[in-house]
Design a protein around this nucleic acid. Structure first.
Lengths: 319, 319
DNA sequence: ACTTGACATGAAAAGCATTCCATAAATTAG
DNA sequence: CTAATTTATGGAATGCTTTTCATGTCAAGT
C-alpha cells in the first residue's frame, strides 16, 4: 500500500505539500495539487489512519459502555448516541460489560490509552471513585445520577419519579403497591426503594417484602412475575414497573390468565418505549433516544455538566 | 504523559528492554525487569496504543454494520458478536447505517483504512459488487445469503424457510395466507416473495396484492397491520410474519380487538426471540445470538467461509 | 582450549502523517 | 522603488512503540 512518501515522489512534490492537499490547506498551486490528486488516484492511496491517530492524539472514536445491547432500553439510548455521532463524524466503540467490573475497567482504560476520545456510560456497577479517577484522562459522561461527584451526567431522579408514581397510584385508591426493579444494587434501584419506603412510612402502611420483584428486566420476566402474583393471598392491586418491556410482558401474561388490567391489577411503568404506546400502558416518559443524543453532545463539549431530566406521566389504560 | 523513552531513562535501560518487559519477552534480567516495572508504576505509565496500532498495522477493533441498533433483532446478533469479541480481547465498532449506502461505504472504508481488522455485516443495502471490492482490504463476513459471491457469509435460505412455512400453513388448511416483510428491496424479502409466488403458482391460487404488508419491522407495526386486516372483506386466514416483534404486536392488537388467534387468524413468524416464547407464538427459530458468535469466530479465521443455517419450526399456540 | 548455544542488551530502523520553521517568490501597499 | 505581505514549498522534527540486527557475556559440551 502506497504511503504519503510514495505520493510525494510520484507527484514530484514534498510530503508536506501532499499533506496540504489531503487536508485541504491553502497555499498549493493548482498544477501541483492536480499532480498529487492524480498520484493518489493512480495508487489508490488512503492515508494510514493509525498514523494520523498517533500524531493527533485522538481517534474520533467514542466509547459506549452498556451492560447488554440486546435490551431495547439500551438500544434506544445507543440509537440516539449513534445518530449524533454520525453528524460529528465520530464512530462508536461498543463495550458490553454485562455489569462485570473488570469489563467496565477495560472501557475506562481505553480512555486512558487514548483509544477513545470520550466515554459514555449508559449504566455501570463500578464505584464512582473509580470512574472519577479515570475522568482525569478524558471526558466521561454517565446516564446516572452523579450529583456530588465530579463526573458529568444526565440523569433521572428516580427517587422523585417513584414518589410521583406512588402518589399517583395512591390517588387512584391503591393502598398496596408492588414494584419491579432490575438490579437490586443499582443506583437507581436504591433511589427507588428509598422512595418506596419513605412513601410507606409517610402513609403509615407496613412494608411487605413480597411486594418487591427483583431482576425484572426483559419482556419475558413478566411471566414469573404474574405467576408469583397469582400465588399471593394478598397481592398488591397495582404494580410499579421500571421498564416498559417488563410491563408489556406482565400485561400480556395477565391477558392470558384473564387477570384484568387495570381492575384487578393496575400497572405503571417507566420509559415510554414504543411498545408502551401500542399496548396503552400508563408510563412515565424517559426520552431515551433524546437522552442518548444529549449524552453525546454534552460529552463532546468536554465540559463538566450535570442535568436532571424530569419524567412525565403519560396516562393510558393500565391504571 | 510518560512515554517508553522516559521509562527507559528512569530505569536505566534501553527502550528495547522496556518493550521486552511490557510484552513479556524473555531475556531480561530480573533486576532490570523490576526497575522497569517500578518506573512504570511511579509514572503511571501506559503505552500509547495508537503507536502500537501504527506499527502493528492492526487495531483489535472489529466493525459491526447494523441498520439500527434499537431493533431487538440486531441487538441479539450484536450481543453474540460482543460475547465472542470479549473472549478474543477485541472491541466492537458499531456502525449504524440506517440502510444508507453512504454510511455503509464508510464502514467498508474503515476496513481499507485499517481502522478495523475485520467487518461484520449484519444487514446491508449496498450491492455485493461494492462489498466484494472492499473484501480485498480485509476480512468481511455477512449475515446474508452470499452464495455465488466472493464474500464469506452465514445465512438463512429464506426461500426455503418461507416455502416450509407456507407448506405448514397449507397443511393446516389455510388457503389464503398473507405475509409481512421488512424492507421490500432486501435480499431476504426478494427470496421470500419469490417463494410466495412460486408456492401460489404450484397450488393454483391467485395472487392478491392486498395480502402483502411491507415495512413491518417493529412491535408497534402490529397495530396498522391488524387495522388494515380488519378492513379487508376477504382477509387472509393466516399471516406469515418475518419478525417475532411484529408478530407479537399483531397478536397484542388481535387480543385487544378480540380477533381470535389462531381461529380467526393464524400467525407464524421467524426468529424465536424470547418474546415469542412468552407469547406462545409459533415461529421458525433463527438462533440470532449464536449466529452472532459464529460470525465473529468465522471472520477472525480470515478464511472464506459460507454456511447455511437451517431454520427450525417451533410449534406453539398461534396456528 | 575451543566451539556452540543460551542469555542479555541496546542502537537503529520501520511504521506514516502532521506541523513547525525556514526560505523563496510574487504581490501589494505606501 | 522599497517595505511589508501574501503565497508557495520543502526539510526536519514530532508522535511512540516494536522489531531486527549486531554485539557481548557466560556456561556447557567436546
Amino acid at each position: 500500500m502506497a504511503n504519503i512518501k510514495d505520493i510525494a515522489r510520484l507527484a514530484g512534490v514534498s510530503v508536506t505539500t501532499v499533506s496540504r492537499v489531503i487536508n485541504g490547506h491553502p497555499y498549493v498551486r493548482d498544477d501541483k495539487k492536480a499532480a498529487v490528486l492524480r498520484a493518489m488516484e493512480e495508487t489508490n492511496y488512503e492515508r494510514n489512519i493509525n498514523a494520523v491517530h498517533l500524531i493527533k492524539g485522538k481517534t474520533n472514536l467514542i466509547g459506549v459502555m452498556v451492560p447488554s445491547i440486546k435490551r431495547p432500553y439500551f438500544g434506544l439510548v445507543v440509537e440516539g448516541i449513534a445518530e449524533e455521532a454520525l453528524k460529528g463524524n465520530y464512530k462508536l466503540v461498543l463495550i458490553q460489560t454485562n455489569y462485570e467490573e473488570q469489563r467496565e475497567q477495560e472501557a475506562l482504560m481505553m480512555l486512558k490509552l487514548k483509544q477513545i476520545d470520550a466515554l459514555i456510560i449508559c449504566s455501570k456497577i463500578s464505584d464512582w471513585d473509580i470512574v472519577e479517577e479515570y475522568a482525569a484522562y478524558g471526558p466521561i459522561i454517565a446516564f446516572e445520577d452523579a450529583r456530588g461527584r465530579n463526573v458529568s451526567s444526565i440523569f433521572i431522579d428516580h427517587y422523585k419519579g417513584f414518589m410521583e408514581a406512588l402518589a399517583y397510584l395512591n390517588g387512584k385508591g391503591h393502598r398496596k403497591v408492588g414494584y419491579c426493579l432490575a438490579r437490586k444494587s443499582g443506583t437507581s434501584s436504591k433511589q427507588r426503594e428509598a422512595a418506596y419506603r419513605d412513601f410507606l412510612k409517610s402513609s403509615g402502611e407496613p412494608f411487605d417484602p413480597d411486594c418487591a420483584f427483583y431482576d425484572a428486566i426483559h419482556f419475558e420476566d413478566g411471566e414469573w412475575i404474574v405467576q408469583r402474583l397469582m400465588t399471593m393471598q394478598d397481592p398488591p392491586t397495582a404494580l410499579l414497573v421500571t421498564s416498559d418491556q417488563v410491563a408489556a410482558g406482565i400485561l400480556a401474561c395477565c391477558n392470558e390468565r384473564e387477570l384484568d388490567v387495570p381492575s384487578k391489577l393496575a400497572i405503571v411503568s417507566f420509559d415510554n418505549q414504543p411498545i408502551a404506546r401500542t399496548l396503552n400502558i400508563t408510563t412515565f416518559e424517559i426520552p431515551l433516544t433524546e437522552i442518548g443524543r444529549d449524552l453525546f453532545r454534552k460529552v463532546m463539549t468536554k465540559e463538566f455538566f450535570q442535568q436532571e431530566i424530569p419524567v412525565r406521566l403519560i396516562e393510558r389504560l393500565t391504571v
